[in-house]
Amino acid sequence: MTALDDLPNVDSFFGIDLKTGSMIVAAIGVVHPMAYGCSFFLPISYLLVTIWILVALYFASSIVLFFGLIKDDVLLCSIWLWYALIFVVVMMMMMILLALVFTSRKQRNRVFVVLLGMLWYVLTVYFIMVVNSHRKRILSNTKVNI
């Protein structure tokens, strides 16, 4: 029993079955870093470099999730889940810092983009619940078959 077992269950991903929904989450995790690669935040700061590194690791963990979903491997799905949980918490803190920096510089457009990013990471919590529900199904199916 892990802390992942305490997360709430969902029955579908916006009406789609959990495996397909988890694949969509993995695909979004692969495409998601491209938004940062094409970032229009030109002055590079340590905060942005840290965010880019975290997002690159999220990309790598999404590739791991793809393999976990293809092979129905609970461990690979769990690796993505643990990193995604840490990622969401750290990224929300980074986004708050970024919003404070842009607010102090009176850069309204960038604050708006950061707020949209924060909403995205709130949605990522739902993605985590979808993948975790699928992981639990895989785990229950393997226990029954043994």
Score class of each variant (00 low, 15 high):
Thr2Met: 06
Leu4Ser: 00
Leu4Trp: 06
Leu7Gly: 05
Asn9Ala: 07
Asn9Gln: 12
Val10Tyr: 07
Asp11Lys: 05
Ile16Gly: 00
Asp17Pro: 04
Asp17His: 02
Lys19Pro: 02
Met23Asn: 08
Met23Lys: 10
Met23Ile: 10
Val25Ala: 03
Val25Gln: 01
Ala27Thr: 13
Ala27Gly: 12
Ile28Pro: 00
Val30Cys: 05
Val31Leu: 13
His32Ile: 01
Pro33Met: 01
Met34Arg: 10
Met34Lys: 09
Ala35Leu: 11
Cys38Val: 03
Cys38Tyr: 02
Ser39Leu: 00
Ser39Glu: 01
Phe40Ala: 11
Phe41Cys: 02
Phe41Glu: 03
Ile44Tyr: 06
Ser45His: 09
Leu47Arg: 11
Leu47Pro: 06
Leu47Asp: 09
Leu47Thr: 04
Leu47Trp: 00
Leu47Phe: 01
Leu48Glu: 08
Val49His: 13
Ile51Tyr: 07
Trp52Pro: 02
Leu54Ile: 11
Val55Trp: 07
Leu57Gly: 05
Tyr58Asp: 06
Tyr58Met: 05
Phe59Ser: 05
Ala60Ser: 09
Ala60Tyr: 02
Ile63Asp: 09
Ile63Arg: 05
Ile63Tyr: 08
Val64Gln: 00
Phe66His: 04
Phe67Met: 14
Gly68Thr: 03
Gly68Tyr: 05
Ile70Thr: 08
Ile70Trp: 12
Lys71Trp: 10
Asp72Leu: 10
Val74Thr: 14
Leu75Trp: 11
Leu76Phe: 09
Ser78His: 04
Ile79Thr: 07
Trp82Asp: 03
Trp82Ser: 02
Trp82Tyr: 13
Tyr83Met: 01
Phe87Asp: 12
Val90Gly: 13
Met92Gln: 15
Met93Lys: 13
Met94Lys: 10
Met95Cys: 12
Met95Asn: 15
Leu97Gly: 15
Leu97Pro: 07
Leu97Ala: 15
Leu98Glu: 11
Leu98Ile: 05
Ala99Lys: 11
Val101Lys: 12
Thr103Met: 14
Ser104Arg: 14
Lys106Arg: 14
Lys106His: 13
Gln107Arg: 15
Asn109Tyr: 10
Val111Cys: 00
Val114Asn: 06
Leu115Asn: 01
Gly117His: 07
Gly117Cys: 07
Met118His: 00
Tyr121Asn: 07
Val122Asn: 01
Val122Arg: 06
Thr124Val: 09
Phe127Asp: 08
Ile128His: 10
Ile128Phe: 06
Met129Ser: 04
Met129Phe: 12
Met129Arg: 10
Val130Leu: 03
Asn132Met: 03
Asn132Cys: 01
Ser133Trp: 04
Ser133Thr: 06
Ser133Ala: 03
Ser133Gly: 03
His134Phe: 15
Arg135Leu: 04
Arg135Asp: 04
Lys136Cys: 05
Arg137Val: 06
Arg137Leu: 08
Arg137Phe: 00
Ile138Pro: 01
Ile138Glu: 02
Ile138Asp: 04
Ser140Ala: 13
Asn141Arg: 15
Thr142Cys: 03
Val144Arg: 11
Asn145Cys: 03
Asn145Asp: 11
Asn145Tyr: 10
Asn145Phe: 08
Ile146Leu: 14
Ile146Asp: 13
